[in-house]
Amino acid sequence: MTNASSSAGPGSSLLGPADVRRLAADLDVRPTKKLGQNFVHDPNTVRRIVASADLRPDDVVLEVGPGLGSLTLALLPACRALVAVEIDGVLAGRLPLTVAERAPGLADRLAVVHGDAMRVTADRLPHAPTALVANLPYNVAVPVVLHLLAELPSLRTGLVMVQSEVADRMAAGPGSKVYGVPSVKLAWYADARRAGPVSRSVFWPVPNVDSALVAFERHAPLSTVDQKWLFSLVDAAFAQRRKTLRGALAGWAGSPAEAERLLLAAGVDPGARGEQLGVDDFVRIAEVASAR
């Protein structure tokens, strides 16, 4: 355990291990694998996450899966407002009370939305978020990030804690063994990088995998090509990794010959494989195909 103390320390508003267990017991909450719940109980870790997020005083933070509020309490002093989206009704109901008790001067910065992050749209949120900072459930981390980037154009930056292997895939570049669909789709929206490891010992319950931080910053749109069309191309390119693009894209393009024609027109070798292409290459292929 990174923090040897049983609490966050004298006078601290942050939650320590004893605080997390007491809150969970009071609420009769038992972390579930179904919801991917692993609560952070180490104050040093949440302080590090907030520092790494590099927030501006006027940022509106979106936190997905705040749980018992460990990260929430660390984020509130660093932003103008925080919107927490929590799927668990018991936890969503308790979070404002925890903040009011431990950081009463910051309670008015918090808004809690009880719901599924995969169904969040801009009109469901009380503020337009500018930064995503979250300890994401392992089983939905990539879909959640992609959904929020698509639905919330106001999101400028993000720092998310995910399973270490997922972090590798999200931040990978062409040619890497772990480069694939998540890498390309995230690159469509933003520049991503690994921002450091997180020990499994800072969670309760302790997961059987290590975690890591991924930072991303949204870039200017790469193209006006339809995002769903582009993503269908990416899915097809990686569906059969051993196939060359000429074969892998045959169904998507209509035939192997048409796939080859489109690839050549886009300046891409039909004998290449999906893992060799960057997002710009996929954009060019989609643009050529859209012009048919």
Results as ranks from 00 to 15, higher is better:
residue 14 L to T: 09
residue 204 W to N: 11
residue 268 V to A: 09
residue 120 V to F: 05
residue 179 Y to M: 08
residue 230 L to W: 09
residue 127 H to N: 08
residue 37 Q to P: 14
residue 157 T to S: 04
residue 219 H to P: 03
residue 245 L to F: 13
residue 119 R to V: 08
residue 233 L to W: 09
residue 38 N to P: 00
residue 183 S to L: 00
residue 115 G to F: 00
residue 178 V to M: 01
residue 148 L to W: 02
residue 290 S to D: 09
residue 15 L to G: 10
residue 59 D to A: 12
residue 118 M to Y: 01
residue 49 I to A: 10
residue 73 L to Y: 14
residue 188 W to F: 04
residue 273 R to C: 04
residue 66 P to D: 10
residue 63 E to Y: 03
residue 184 V to T: 08
residue 209 V to D: 05
residue 177 K to H: 12
residue 258 E to Y: 12
residue 225 V to L: 10
residue 185 K to Q: 11
residue 45 T to I: 03
residue 143 P to Q: 07
residue 173 G to P: 09
residue 43 P to Q: 04
residue 155 L to A: 11
residue 286 A to F: 05
residue 276 Q to W: 14
residue 242 R to H: 15
residue 89 G to R: 15
residue 217 E to H: 08
residue 82 L to M: 08
residue 121 T to C: 02
residue 10 P to W: 14
residue 85 V to A: 02
residue 51 A to I: 11
residue 189 Y to F: 10
residue 130 T to Q: 09
residue 160 V to M: 02
residue 154 S to P: 13
residue 202 V to K: 08
residue 278 G to I: 01
residue 144 V to L: 09
residue 20 V to Q: 15
residue 117 A to C: 11
residue 233 L to F: 10
residue 233 L to K: 01
residue 230 L to K: 12
residue 197 P to K: 12
residue 190 A to S: 07
residue 260 E to I: 06
residue 119 R to K: 13
residue 153 P to D: 06
residue 79 C to M: 13
residue 259 A to F: 06
residue 90 V to G: 09
residue 259 A to R: 03
residue 200 R to S: 10
residue 251 G to M: 04
residue 62 L to A: 06
residue 161 M to Q: 04
residue 161 M to S: 00
residue 50 V to C: 11
residue 173 G to T: 04
